[in-house]
Computed example of a mutant assay.
Amino acid sequence: MADPAVLSQLREQLRAMETQGFRRRPSLPFGLGAIDSRLADGGLRLDALHEVAGGTSDMADDCAATLFLAGIAARAWGPVLWVVRRRDLFAPGVAQVGISHKRLIYAEAADDSELLAIMEEGLRHRGLGAVIGEAKRADMTATRRLQLAAEGGRTIALLLKRPAREGSDPIGMPSAAVTRWRVTSAPSTPLPVEGVGRPRWRLALARQKGGEGFEIEVEACDATGRCALPSAVADRKAVAGGSANRHAA
């Protein structure tokens, strides 16, 4: 009869080999019950594609969508591949929401087709925590390829969708993405003195696989990539006897 302790140690070694030394979480939670409880996977699936777009074509909403997406990547586990069409990514800005320049790998693509191909290669590499791309056109075939490349891995795929033309809806076309978000700037958190408080965003989950859409207002990502509920909302929940979950975990 084999020693149970030896068998237990062997099982641990095999599990470590299968996961390359760590146990993969199935999803990346926001740490806010008001969001995670309404997501089918209790957070964003790590082995999946997620799309984000600005709520309008306004530059402020484009920046908000970029920082929302960067905050998600900041909370992922390792290096981040960011694929761009233009050299306009403001590194200090994404650093403020938790992505150190030491974690960032930049790739510049000539067009959307090349950008999507680079994203796919990055997802299949399996050595990255997140792969981000910024595209105007990504049809069902392209997004299905990204979703398939992400499945079975531990690299979250994040696609920032920009309008293909003035007035068009970036996430209006069919997509294989598991979640599709719109991010709109909202009035900043009020301060007791004159000045600009913490930015706020209106998050609209337009679609999710296995669940319903919803809208919620949050305070923008902090230096660790975490959002928070606006203080008035958090205080109201606390008074009602619920869990405020003001800061993301």
Rank of each mutant, 00 (worst) to 15 (best):
M1L: 10
D3A: 08
A5T: 07
L7E: 10
Q9Y: 09
R11E: 12
E12L: 07
Q13A: 04
Q13D: 15
L14R: 09
M17T: 15
M17Y: 11
Q20Y: 08
R24E: 14
S27C: 04
P29N: 02
L32I: 08
G33F: 01
D41T: 13
D47T: 04
H50N: 03
A53N: 06
S57Q: 14
D58R: 14
D61I: 06
C63F: 05
C63Q: 13
C63I: 15
L67I: 11
F68A: 13
G71E: 02
A76K: 03
W77D: 09
V84L: 10
R86K: 11
L89M: 12
P92F: 03
S100L: 02
S100K: 07
A110N: 09
E114Y: 11
E114H: 03
E121V: 00
H125E: 09
R126T: 07
L128M: 09
G129W: 12
I132Q: 01
I132N: 01
G133H: 05
G133R: 12
G133D: 06
E134R: 15
K136W: 15
R137V: 13
D139Q: 12
D139N: 15
T143V: 04
R144N: 11
R144E: 10
L146Q: 07
Q147A: 10
L148T: 00
R154I: 11
T155F: 13
I156P: 06
I156L: 14
R165H: 11
R165I: 12
G167Y: 06
I171H: 03
P174L: 07
S175I: 14
V178G: 06
W181P: 11
R182M: 08
R182A: 12
V183M: 08
T184Q: 07
S188F: 03
T189P: 01
V193Y: 02
E194L: 07
E194Q: 05
R198Y: 08
R198G: 00
P199M: 02
W201C: 00
R202L: 06
A204W: 03
L205H: 10
A206S: 14
G211Y: 04
G213P: 01
E215K: 08
E215C: 06
C227I: 09
A228V: 06
L229Y: 00
P230V: 00
G241F: 12
N245Y: 02
R246W: 04
A248D: 10
A249T: 13
